Simulated scan of single mutants.
Amino acid sequence: MRQVLRSQAGILRALWRGVRHRRDVGPGDVAISYAGRTGPVVPVLAVLGVLEVVVVHVITPWPVVRWLLFGVGVCALVWFAGFVLALAQNPHLLQRDQLVLRFAHSDRIVVPLASLVSAGRRHRGGHRRTTVLEGDRLAVSFMGDTDVELRFDPPVQVAGQPRPVATVAFSADDPVAAVRELRSRVLSA
Rank of each mutant, 00 (worst) to 15 (best):
A166Q: 11
F170N: 15
P112N: 10
A46G: 02
D97H: 00
V74L: 07
E52M: 07
R121T: 03
R137D: 10
L48E: 05
H105I: 10
H57G: 12
S141Y: 11
G160R: 11
F170R: 14
W67I: 00
L45S: 09
L101P: 15
T131Q: 07
A119G: 11
T60S: 10
A166S: 07
V58L: 10
D147Y: 07
P175N: 09
D153S: 06
T146K: 06
I59Y: 08
G82E: 02
F80C: 02
D173K: 04
Q95N: 08
V84C: 10
A86W: 13
P164M: 01
S118L: 08
V74S: 04
L150V: 13
G126I: 04
S118E: 03
P164A: 04
V117R: 01
V50W: 08
R66M: 15
G126S: 07
Q157V: 01
I109K: 02
V78A: 07
F152T: 08
V42N: 01
P91D: 13
L77I: 08
V42S: 06
L68T: 10
A139K: 12
R96I: 14
G82L: 01
P162C: 00
F152I: 14
P112Q: 05
R163H: 01
V64C: 09
E149H: 13
E149P: 03
V41Y: 07
R124N: 04
D153T: 15
R102Q: 05
S118Q: 07
D173Y: 10
H123M: 15
Q161W: 05
V56M: 08
Q161Y: 04
